[in-house]
């Protein structure tokens, strides 16, 4: 959901590409209502592309028509969204190549003075 915000970088800058990633899986309670709520807010293509980079290959390329009541799909979405955490890594802008660092599970989106 994060996007490059370097001044003048406004095209082809999403999704940021994850690199050198260390993942952690943490079990979380599945809440179908929440996932249904999220369906309308997701940029699904970007999510799938990012998951593929992380070798999470079980999400279908498009949201199934019956997504809201497709248990199998909701389970996979739940796993990708809520149980997979990037602990360390980099997010690289596909346009300007700016690198944002993730440390302790926290992405740093701060820019240096000259980039704002």
């Amino acid at each position: 959901m994060l996007q490059c915000h370097v001044k003048g970088c406004n095209a082809n800058n999403f999704p940021l590409e994850l690199q050198e990633v260390v993942l952690e899986e943490q079990e979380a309670e599945l809440n179908e209502d929440f996932l249904r709520n999220m369906l309308g807010k997701l940029e699904y293509e970007a999510l799938v592309a990012t998951c593929l980079k992380l070798n999470i290959q079980d999400l279908p390329p498009t949201i199934p028509e019956d997504a809201a009541y497709n248990d199998d799909f909701l389970q996979k979405l739940h796993h990708a969204l809520l149980e997979t955490h990037v602990i360390t890594g980099k997010m690289v802008c596909p346009n300007c190549q700016h690198t944002y660092v993730i440390r302790d599970g926290i992405p740093n989106m701060l820019l240096a003075e000259h980039e704002v």
Partner: peptide
Amino acid sequence: LTADVVETSLVEGLLPRLKGK
């Protein structure tokens, strides 16, 4: 509990993706 924390100034980097969400 869990939360996704971002190190940033106000909401830099969150727009436009989280627009209206």
